[in-house]
Computed example of a mutant assay.
Amino acid sequence: MQLSEQMFERVQRELTDSYDEELELELEDREIDPVTMKVVERERSAEAKEARRVYFTELLRLQAELVKLQDWVVHTGHKVVILFEGRDAAGKGGVIKRIVQRLNPRVCRVAALPAPNNRERTQWYFQRYVSHLPAAGEIVLFDRSWYNRAGVERVMGFCTDDQYEEFFQTVPEFERMLVRSGIQVIKYWFSISDEEQNARFLGRIHDPLKQWKLSPMDLESRRRWEEYTRAKEVMLERTHIPEAPWWVVQGVDKKKARLNCIHHLLQQMPYEEVEHAAIELPEREYHEDYVRRPVPPEIIVPEVY
């Protein structure tokens, strides 16, 4: 596929971002296709390396603050629900990954529900989400949420007009009820441009490790861009309430979007550092009657590397 210079640069950002998971910078070592190889050559520039260094420095600083937030949530018994919504490839999964990366999964967990099964379709619409709500001292991140009804279900015709209208009548009171019960509700919408989504989809096409992310539903969403825009505008207008307002994250630059979202999230709670007793490693006990048994060689994993 021949790409224009401008589009190539957009695809370049998408490809390089996918390999920046940790500080190892796997781009140096992978056997990759010709398009990605050109990206590698460009990303070896001093300017690109400096930008990456600044990004990781700030990301690690914010993640250290998230650890403090986690301790405070456990210490105070706070309960938090964070919703991440946006178009396909808007960057929701990327920021969720960076939030949970260094946190305790027993405290901070992700709820990414699949399409409802036949039984769930007959339940109260919010029922399958309720079981994932947090107990005291827990943070739950919803990678897409009950707002599926206002987005994909509306655009793709998976709900009726009556169900769609009932959702808007119910969701404000449902969220107010959560807040009254002591659950903090934070809602993020990740906003990207038409051109940026197109570039990210092209990036997935050229990355064999991410092609699985391009489902038929994702491809159809490209065609229905304007319908999704209208649905999003209605959703924000009808569900932006004081108890649970929407926050829009500008997501065209993925790295800035992650940093901005995490920085904003930290500001939504009055957390403070929790004092912990100094950790001391106990002395290991030794017993004269203990003899370590040899491991049967047939169950040892071969040392290929």
Rank of each mutant, 00 (worst) to 15 (best):
C159Y: 06
E272S: 15
R223Q: 04
E237L: 07
E227Y: 06
Y164P: 15
T239E: 11
C261R: 01
Q169Y: 05
S215Q: 07
E280H: 13
V155N: 04
T229H: 13
K254R: 13
E173N: 05
R149K: 00
A150Q: 01
V249N: 14
H206R: 14
M269A: 10
Q163G: 00
L259H: 11
M217E: 10
H263I: 12
R200V: 06
M269K: 08
E226F: 00
S221H: 03
P245G: 03
V185Y: 04
I205E: 11
I205R: 00
E196M: 14
H276Q: 04
Q184A: 11
Q163D: 03
H263G: 04
G251T: 04
G203N: 10
K187M: 09
E165H: 02
S193D: 03
S181R: 04
H264I: 12
F190K: 08
Q163E: 03
A150P: 00
F190V: 08
E275W: 10
Q211V: 02
E227N: 03
S221M: 06
A277R: 10
T160W: 00
S215R: 08
P245F: 04
T160A: 06
D218I: 09
A277C: 05
G251V: 11
A277H: 11
L281A: 11
T229M: 11
K255A: 14
P172G: 10
V234Q: 05
G182H: 01
G151C: 03
V171S: 08
S215A: 03
I192R: 00
K232E: 12
D162M: 02
Y188I: 04
T229I: 09
L219K: 01
I186N: 02
D253G: 04
H264E: 13
E153T: 05
P270V: 05
H240M: 07
L209W: 05
S191M: 07
V252R: 01
H240A: 05
P245K: 14
H276D: 00
D161L: 15
A278I: 12
D161H: 15
T229R: 14
G157C: 07
